[in-house]
Computed example of a mutant assay.
Amino acid sequence: MRIWSVHPRFLDGKGLVACWRETLLAQAVLAGRTRGYTRHPQLVRFRAQDDPIGAVGAYLTGLVDEADLRGYRFDRTRIERPVATNALIAVTEGQLGYEWGHLQAKLVERSPEVAARWRDVTPEPHRLFRIVPGPVEDWERPGPDPARLGPLGGDA
């Protein structure tokens, strides 16, 4: 499960669809409708909110808005609490940078044209998040060594 901190505009089509599906699963987990994935680290930041279902609903709203811009048909009725809000959850610079590097590696493999479009861009977060100073989040399970990544995902 990957619930990206980066703005959904940076995701390729496959990534946007996968994020939508995985975040719907996260919504089900947070609502207590499934027994799987209950300890998934990606859910820590949503559980820490006063209204976890509203927070994940705000995240899903951002995804469906991006899907609409691209002409995709995501079913908005699947969002339990479609909250339109901005910057509720802090995301560290280190986390955003780590995810940016991770996303770039995925895009180079499966969507090189999308990777090229975003190569020299500074990533922005999903509108639910606000950037704060700090390293990769404690809940992240890093693949590549995050110490070699600069503050926004480039080589240090």
Rank of each mutant, 00 (worst) to 15 (best):
L149S: 06
H40N: 10
H126G: 05
H7I: 09
P123V: 05
D50S: 15
A28I: 00
L16Q: 04
R130S: 02
R148M: 13
D51R: 12
P82H: 02
E93L: 06
R117P: 07
D75H: 05
R21I: 13
L96Q: 08
Q49F: 02
R130T: 13
R127E: 11
R76D: 09
L96R: 15
I53R: 05
R21Y: 12
R130P: 03
P52A: 12
L25F: 04
G15R: 09
P123N: 06
V132K: 11
L107K: 08
L103M: 14
W4Y: 14
D51V: 03
H7A: 15
P146N: 11
I89M: 11
P8Y: 04
Y98Q: 07
R117N: 04
L88G: 15
G153C: 10
Q42I: 08
E140V: 13
F129M: 08
L149A: 14
T23F: 00
K106V: 07
S111E: 06
A48F: 09
R81V: 05
P142C: 02
L149D: 04
G57L: 10
A48E: 15
L60I: 01
H102L: 15
A105W: 10
A116N: 04
Q104I: 10
G36T: 06
T122S: 13
N86L: 11
R119G: 01
F129P: 00
M1P: 01
K14G: 10
R141E: 15
T34C: 01
G62A: 01
A115G: 11
A105R: 15
R81T: 07
L96P: 02
L149R: 15
F74H: 10
A90F: 06
D68C: 14
A31Q: 12
H40V: 03
L24Y: 08
A115H: 08
A84W: 08
P133N: 12
T61Y: 06
V29R: 01
P135K: 04
K106H: 12
D145E: 08
H126K: 03
A28H: 12
A116L: 10
Q27R: 04
G54Y: 14
I89P: 02
R47H: 07
R2W: 13
R73Q: 12
R39P: 00
K106M: 08
K14N: 07
L69P: 00
G15Y: 06
